[in-house]
Simulated scan of single mutants.
Amino acid sequence: MSVLLSTDLPFPVFRRGKVRDVYDLGTELLIVATDRISAFDCVMPEGIPDKGRLLTAVASYWFAATEDLVPNHFRGHPGWPAALEAHRKDLAGRAVIVEKTRPLPVECVVRGYLAGSGWKEYQAGGSVCGVALPPGLRLADRLPEPIFTPATKAEEGHDENISFERMAGIVGAELATRLRDLSLALYRRGAELAARKGILLADTKFEFGLSISGELLLIDEALTPDSSRYWLADSWAPGQNPPSLDKQFLRDYLETLPDWNKQPPAPHLPEAVIQGIRARYLDLAGRFGID
Score class of each variant (00 low, 15 high):
residue 76 G to A: 07
residue 161 N to A: 10
residue 17 G to Y: 06
residue 56 T to G: 00
residue 262 K to F: 01
residue 265 P to K: 08
residue 188 R to F: 01
residue 36 R to P: 11
residue 243 P to D: 08
residue 123 Q to A: 12
residue 110 V to C: 04
residue 104 L to N: 07
residue 241 N to V: 10
residue 73 H to W: 07
residue 75 R to C: 12
residue 238 P to F: 08
residue 162 I to V: 08
residue 179 L to W: 10
residue 61 Y to V: 00
residue 144 P to D: 08
residue 148 F to K: 01
residue 239 G to N: 04
residue 148 F to H: 03
residue 83 A to C: 12
residue 265 P to N: 06
residue 193 L to E: 02
residue 244 S to L: 07
residue 56 T to Q: 02
residue 45 P to K: 13
residue 177 T to E: 15
residue 288 F to L: 01
residue 87 H to Q: 13
residue 1 M to F: 09
residue 234 D to S: 11
residue 262 K to T: 06
residue 198 G to N: 05
residue 256 T to R: 13
residue 21 D to E: 00
residue 223 L to Y: 00
residue 120 K to D: 13
residue 250 L to M: 04
residue 96 V to I: 14
residue 271 E to A: 14
residue 142 R to Q: 14
residue 108 C to T: 09
residue 222 A to V: 07
residue 188 R to N: 11
residue 130 G to R: 04
residue 127 S to P: 05
residue 19 V to H: 00
residue 75 R to N: 12
residue 193 L to M: 05
residue 52 G to M: 01
residue 2 S to W: 13
residue 40 F to T: 06
residue 170 I to W: 10
residue 25 L to R: 10
residue 291 D to W: 12
residue 196 R to M: 09
residue 119 W to Q: 02
residue 115 A to E: 05
residue 98 V to F: 01
residue 216 L to Y: 10
residue 277 I to E: 13
